[in-house]
Design a binder for these strands. Structure first.
Ligand SMILES: NC(=O)c1ccc[n+]([C@@H]2O[C@H](COP(=O)([O-])OP(=O)(O)OC[C@H]3O[C@@H](n4cnc5c(N)ncnc54)[C@H](O)[C@@H]3O)[C@@H](O)[C@H]2O)c1
Ligand SMILES: NC(=O)c1ccc[n+]([C@@H]2O[C@H](COP(=O)([O-])OP(=O)(O)OC[C@H]3O[C@@H](n4cnc5c(N)ncnc54)[C@H](O)[C@@H]3O)[C@@H](O)[C@H]2O)c1
Lengths: 218, 218
DNA sequence: TTTTTATAGTGAAAAAAATCACAAAATGGC
DNA sequence: GCCATTTTGTGATTTTTTTCACTATAAAAA
């Protein structure tokens, strides 16, 4: 009932509300949010209904109250700590990106097997030996990890992460990971994302499709 | 009818077939492919049926013939050229990654406004001034672009791309792009991808969910 | 105060996607 | 060559997701 697409929509509503809030708006209607996020007003109301979120008939939603509820549902009230394993191209890009911290996601540390990648510079995100992953994750009660190692190492890194207590993983390696214990794995395969665009273009489907986030017509 | 999810599955079948082929296998059954990709055998057959792909009753599919058909549908017979705009963290990571070329996707050039990013070194992917985007895209008949510039510049870069003749875009900037002309936009929002994992973990949904590729139950 | 109007909330309907289930066909064994 | 078995291809069914449509209600207007 609550699937990834739905959560992504909630996150988008939250972002749109945040913008509206900082522009000084106090209330919002389902169709304003719908416009901002690119869905229908029904979809917005249905999503809220699913999470027991109520507004005021004819009065819309109070932005602050709504933000509060969404932030609670989405775990945005406390900062979430994550670790990255693999400080190469992707791992380094993620570490340099400020957008995670802005959204309350703290990259607590990165782990690598290559000593050349280690980094203890004050102010930077620490890059530590992989051997320290387990203790670090346990001591900092970290539940989320990012896999940014070469494909052949990804399964082994997942196993280490799960053994250390990590429950959710964002995986950039283009392989199918096998998980023994209960966990959530979200795969991001950038090659497939690009190949999908290529498919739609070489098949001349750009005329019927404007945006393919999940699937949307123009 | 044919949506992004379906194309991603086709691409996965293709990759699985490629592996099987190089292991020396000659034929494959729908349930082998299903296992390899993590879907049901019905789904595999339905997808093929949608594209008019036939196998042999009781004989499965000839891997080579099947690969040929999928490659044709997916445009894998000719190399596809793409350009990147924005040679920063993400752009540079993509340029260094060998996985695109392996899949027949050639990053022909990158464009930036920062002269410090320019690169004409032989063997590297050229990083050129943004002003050259239009001519380069036209001369090389490029139809696909990647947006890896800061959020504020993304819309303006999209407009430039479309004006130059680009039809399909992979966009890493976490904003909603507006496109006048017919084009395909595939948004990759890494922050949302990570936040989705966080949602499922803090709500203790890892017990019921193993993998959140597209859809998940609570 | 009463009326008008706009919008939330939600069950019903529709659309889309996935799965089922089974006839048809091909293979291999005997 | 015939039979038993396996697997495809696809219409039917089910499940999931989205949209519709209408009621209740709160705000504004009269
Ligand atoms: N770079 C990209 O643009 C890109 C695009 C798509 C997919 N990917 C995928 O992302 C992953 C990372 O790619 P990348 O380009 O950053 O690779 P990379 O080679 O630049 O970096 C990998 C890092 O992981 C480290 N590493 C290797 N084995 C390890 C292990 N067992 N434990 C800990 N660290 C280990 C290496 O030392 C290196 O620092 C790969 O699976 C790749 O397929 C990358
Ligand atoms: N780095 C990440 O891990 C990450 C994660 C999620 C999203 N993103 C998004 O990806 C995009 C790029 O991120 P980044 O970290 O690579 O940024 P970055 O600042 O490292 O790189 C941006 C590059 O774009 C160039 N640029 C700026 N304006 C330009 C213009 N008008 N035309 C051409 N080039 C221009 C800059 O010179 C720079 O080289 C951003 O929108 C960001 O929000 C990045």
């Amino acid at each position: 009932m609550v699937n990834k697409k739905c959560i992504i929509r909630l996150l988008r509503y939250k972002n749109a509300l945040h913008r509206l809030n900082s522009l000084g708006f106090v209330k919002v209607f389902s169709d304003n949010l719908a416009d901002a996020v690119g869905v229908t007003a029904s979809q917005v109301r249905k999503d809220f209904s699913l999470f027991g979120i109520c507004g005021n008939k004819r009065g819309g939603y109070q932005i602050e109250a709504l933000l509060g509820k969404l932030n609670h549902i989405l775990g945005k009230n406390e900062q979430q700590k994550v670790v990255i394993v693999g400080g190469g191209n992707i791992g380094a890009a993620l570490m340099k990106y400020k957008g995670f911290e802005k959204e309350g996601v703290k990259i607590a540390a990165c782990f690598d097997i290559d000593p050349a990648k280690y980094n203890h510079k004050e102010g930077d995100i620490p890059v530590l030996p992989l051997e320290q992953l387990r203790d670090f994750v346990r001591q900092n009660h970290i539940k989320i990890g990012v896999i940014a190692v070469p494909d052949i190492a990804a399964q082994q890194v997942l196993d280490l992460m799960l053994a250390a207590g990590i429950k959710g993983v964002l995986n950039f390696a283009p392989i199918r990971l096998r998980a023994a214990s209960d966990c959530v794995i979200n795969n991001v395969n950038l090659v497939l994302e690009l190949e999908t665009v290529i498919y739609f273009i070489i098949n001349g489907l750009e005329k019927s499709i404007a945006e393919i986030h999940e699937e949307q017509k123009s």
